[in-house]
Each structure stands twice: as C-alpha cells, then as structure tokens.
C-alpha cells in the first residue's frame, strides 16, 4: 500500500519533469538552451519513472522481484551513462554545424564564432 503510494508519487514527479522538459523545449530561445531542457529533463524523469515501476513491481518480496528491480536499476545506470554523452554529442554537432549561440549581453563567448571553427 505504502509502496504503491510511493511508486505513484515517483511516477508523477517524473511526469512533472517531463512536462518541464517539453515546455522548455518550446520556450527556450536557441538550440543550445533547448538541449538543456531536452537532455536533462529526460534523464531525471526517466530515472524517476523507472524507479517508480521498480517499486510497483516490488510487492511480495520474492526472488524474481529482486531480479526485476536489479534489471530496472541496470537500465537506470545505462541512462545515467549514455544520456549526458548523447547530449554532449548533439550540442557539439550543433556547434560544428555553425549554429550561432544566443549569448547574454553581460557575458562574452570565450569559444568564439562557431563558423570560424577555431577558438
């Protein structure tokens, strides 16, 4: 009962972060800031939803439930590893492709113009 409640809470929190990522994807000004929304919103919300599933399956403390929870934990570890890498790969590809970043007026772009390629 309590486990069900906790798992529901986790899944709801995960969905809330998904909503945040989706809204950010629309509202943010340029490619780079949108990658912030897409890359990070995905990671934590997937982790939360998957751990919610793991708790939900974890009803009667049998051996197979532990195995299932371990499998879901393995998925979490894979997401933790691959998600930042893919975010980095996308943002680097965007930079190499020459997409102009939006820079705040009080800051300077230390990396230089993406079209000139060399910082």
């Amino acid at each position: 009962m309590i486990l069900d409640l906790v798992s529901m809470l986790l899944i709801a929190a995960g969905l809330l972060f998904f909503v945040g990522a989706a809204v950010g994807l629309v509202r943010f000004p340029d490619f780079y800031t949108r990658m912030h929304a897409a890359g990070k919103g995905d990671t934590l919300s997937s982790l939360l939803v998957i751990s919610g599933f793991a708790l939900h399956e974890f009803k009667d403390f049998e051996g197979m439930d532990f195995i299932l929870a371990l499998k879901l934990l393995a998925i979490c570890v894979f997401i933790m590893m691959t998600s930042p890498t893919s975010t980095h790969a996308l943002i680097d590809a965007g930079y190499e492709d020459g997409i102009e970043p939006v820079i705040a007026p009080d800051a300077e772009n230390v990396l230089g113009d993406p079209t000139s390629r060399q910082p």
Binding site: F17, G20, K40, L44
Partner: peptide
C-alpha cells in the same frame, strides 16, 4: 541531478 532539474523546472514553468 535533482537540483539541476528543479532549477530547470523553475526556469521553464
């Protein structure tokens, strides 16, 4: 990671 997403959520919503 949790802090990161809370910050992002605040920025978007």
């Amino acid at each position: 990671l949790v802090l990161s997403n809370l910050h992002l959520l605040k920025l978007t919503l």
